[in-house]
């Protein structure tokens, strides 16, 4: 499969700030790549480089083999973009906004209008079609902006936080629109703060931090990277931690970690509920009362926090221990 998007060692500085510090990324045609990262990581800057809005200081970025600098005009014909902040014209109606975009994609008047009508319906804006955008709510503007990105049915779509500020219904509608487009063969690069969204929409996820891609893979691969399944137990008595640790050795699949302060034990396992039941039975037989127990698979939230964690205090210690950075590990 050929790559629709390719980014090689792209560096972008704004004065003293290095926004992109050697980004590498490739997105196979027809797939969805999710860019995940904390605020200021460089997601928007990456999107802006790929959509020809910013020239990289060094490195190379291409979309379908077209260079973002040299072949910008040809590249623009094949992409659709919705930036982090809605770029819609306040003084035009919703319909006029989409018609304008269609005309500028050179669809011709009739097709531009037909497409505008279609998209307004798809994004639930048909009632607002003839209203001037100035009076629109944030979510309505956002939807209109997204519709603008889809006008020309682009081969490659860039959406920067497409569902931020949308109500749940609009978010689901957005997801459906995106899925439809991808099903028809388009490639999508999307940034998001919602891990659920990345989990649901993206084939692969790249975690960006400090202007670099620090991890990349499918949601499952990333979860495995942070740690597989585990049992988390909280004991009634702190003085039994050591006993519990020995008892659980039989079901553990990796190193057990213990947090004395919270009377907590985290046990990596490989056999899921089977390990859970056996572990509990063993503890019961050893006379160790347990007040709380969960079988957990890491979520993308865990992945996100573990990979981008900068300071170690007051975040979920279970995850931190698995990422090998836990504090207060006692035996």
């Amino acid at each position: 499969m050929s790559d629709a998007i390719q980014v090689e060692n792209v560096v972008k500085r704004f004065g003293a700030v290095t926004a992109l510090d050697g980004v590498n990324l490739s997105v196979p045609a027809g797939t969805v790549m999710g860019l995940l990262g904390p605020n200021g990581a460089g997601k928007t800057t990456t999107v802006r480089v790929l959509t020809t809005l910013l020239e990289p200081d060094s490195g190379r970025a291409t979309v379908h083999g077209l260079d973002v600098v040299r072949d910008a005009p040809a590249l623009r014909r094949r992409i659709g973009v919705s930036g982090q902040y809605a770029a819609v014209d306040e003084y035009l109606t919703a319909f006029e906004n989409l018609e304008l975009v269609g005309r500028l994609y050179r669809l011709g008047r009739r097709r531009a209008r037909a497409r505008a009508t279609e998209l307004l319906e798809q994004f639930g804006l048909e009632d607002a079609a003839t209203r001037v955008v100035k009076g629109f709510s944030g979510g309505m503007r956002r939807r209109l902006d997204l519709a603008g990105a889809l006008v020309a049915r682009p081969e490659v779509l860039f959406l920067d936080e497409p569902t931020t500020g949308l109500d749940p219904r609009s978010r689901i509608a957005m997801w459906e629109a995106i899925s439809e487009l991808v099903a028809s063969g388009s490639t999508l690069l999307l940034t998001t703060q919602y891990l659920e969204e990345a989990d649901r929409l993206a084939d692969r996820i790249a975690v960006v931090d400090h202007g670099r891609v620090i991890a990349e893979g499918t949601a499952d691969e990333l979860k495995d990277q942070v740690g597989g399944e585990r049992i988390e137990l909280t004991l009634e008595r702190a003085d039994q931690l050591s006993l519990a640790r020995t008892t659980l050795g039989g079901v553990a699949h990796g190193e057990i970690s213990v947090s004395a302060e919270q009377r907590r034990i985290v046990v990596p396992v490989s056999t899921g509920s089977h390990a859970l039941m056996r572990g509990l039975r063993d503890l019961d037989e050893a006379g160790v009362p347990v007040i709380d127990v969960v079988l957990r698979r890491p979520t993308l939230d865990d992945v996100f926090l573990a990979l981008t964690e900068r300071q170690q205090d007051d975040t979920d210690p279970g995850v931190l221990e698995h990422a090998g950075r836990g504090a207060e590990i006692a035996t």
Binding site: T51, T52, L53, R76, G83, A87, V88, V101, L104, Y105
Partner: peptide
Amino acid sequence: QKGIIDRFRTLPISRSA
């Protein structure tokens, strides 16, 4: 300021349009 130039600049229109 409103970001519309960004939208225009990603569209395949002539540079002077």
